[in-house]
Nucleic acid binder design. Sequence first.
DNA 1: GCCGGGGCATCCCTATAGGATTTGATCATG
DNA 2: CATGATCAAATCCTATAGGGATGCCCCGGC
Lengths: 244, 244
Amino acid sequence: MQKASNGTRAGSRPDDQTGDRRGSRTVNRQVLADHVYEELLASLMDGRLEPGAAISIDGTARELDVSPTPVREALARLEHTGMVRRVALKGYRVAPVFTREDFAELMEARLVIEPVNARLACARLTPERLAELEQAVSDLKSAPRGPSFAEYKDYLEADERFHQLIAQQTGNQFMAAAYAALGGQVQRFRLFGGVGITDAEYAIAEHQSVLDAFSTGDPEKAEAAMADHVQKVRARAIADAPAD
Amino acid sequence: MQKASNGTRAGSRPDDQTGDRRGSRTVNRQVLADHVYEELLASLMDGRLEPGAAISIDGTARELDVSPTPVREALARLEHTGMVRRVALKGYRVAPVFTREDFAELMEARLVIEPVNARLACARLTPERLAELEQAVSDLKSAPRGPSFAEYKDYLEADERFHQLIAQQTGNQFMAAAYAALGGQVQRFRLFGGVGITDAEYAIAEHQSVLDAFSTGDPEKAEAAMADHVQKVRARAIADAPAD
DNA sequence: GCCGGGGCATCCCTATAGGATTTGATCATG
DNA sequence: CATGATCAAATCCTATAGGGATGCCCCGGC
């Protein structure tokens, strides 16, 4: 229908300093696919794209005012995260909703991987990393916890950051990859979407326990604290699970 | 490797003479990116693409007689497997070689994930799946083990199939994803590239032990057998590690 | 002989065009 | 009123074109 007066951008291509990411002298030419990727990820997380909805390549391209080529590349990357699914000649769709079985499987997997990560990370912890973990817990405590997405966004971000720091601190790229395969941040958003944060007090205390264990430098203690945390998260989530 | 069962939809596609004057590439009505993906994966595994080498998008497109667009999409998918790495505006390169540290990390991760997978899979094993596992071990025994890649290709394939079946049989999509994140087949090929199969006798016996444990239906036994296997694989690989 | 600059080729990245197919709506008919 | 067919719009997929940047090689000057 509307050609969306985009003739302007097509002509003046040379240097679009619109994106003021890094001000250095390096030509700030960020790949468009990266931008599309982040944009789609944000749309997926804050609910603008509901599970099961179709993601049109051309439509997304028009919406973001780019050509379909970068959109295609961004979706190809997103596919591997499990957020979107692709059917051969039909296009992309947002992954279906999380069922109770899915949740149980996720927690089972986290219970296998995360305590081990905590043990490994604790064994080779540096003061700098410990400070980062403390910062994450501090952010967790100070983050707002309102009912809407915008209000608990920071809380989830700090939560994810805490666990991801531990995964990276293991120094084992494969354990970090295994944790990443669980969908970390993404799954966290999907779990709490529509439910909100109801267990912040308990969760914060458990994170603090893990952090304390790290401070003592006892890997066994860190492993146990993390296992305890994951188990309790599962128990609480099951208790007030949404009726799906 | 070909999927010959595409006669339903793809076959109904008439009019294949769309100006194709060049070659015999009329078939393959499945998405070209899939074809490019498999082709690149094969090239990576049999050593045609050495670690560190650049993968030119345009060059690959010319070589496979397609346009750069499908190549770009295939590479975007490959990036997530860890096989290739991408630098923002520089292109793609084959991931660097495996160091001893990388290998140690991989084995540490496998030692965490695979025994658990074995326990979970054993707990819910069906006769059909058991038969598939037996078939994999049988193939492992009968596969040739020559020095060249073509000769031990089937051996590695059966090995990977055995472990992957177990990961899938857990019924936990996240554990399967975590195992997949380790690179399964891919890493296996890279490990033995240039070394060849030297421990087939021991490895086959260990696989048989795992299979026997599955037959008894004792999850603890299966877990122990798998842990034993992974540990011994590590020990043997360290013993005759290539001088990198 | 040695060194620096310009032309040339290559490459990545994005946009645009067009073929093939599916989906949805509109309209005609039993 | 219900149902089936036809047409148009949308969509996916691939190819092609062109802009910008980087690297290489040849060649002229010192």
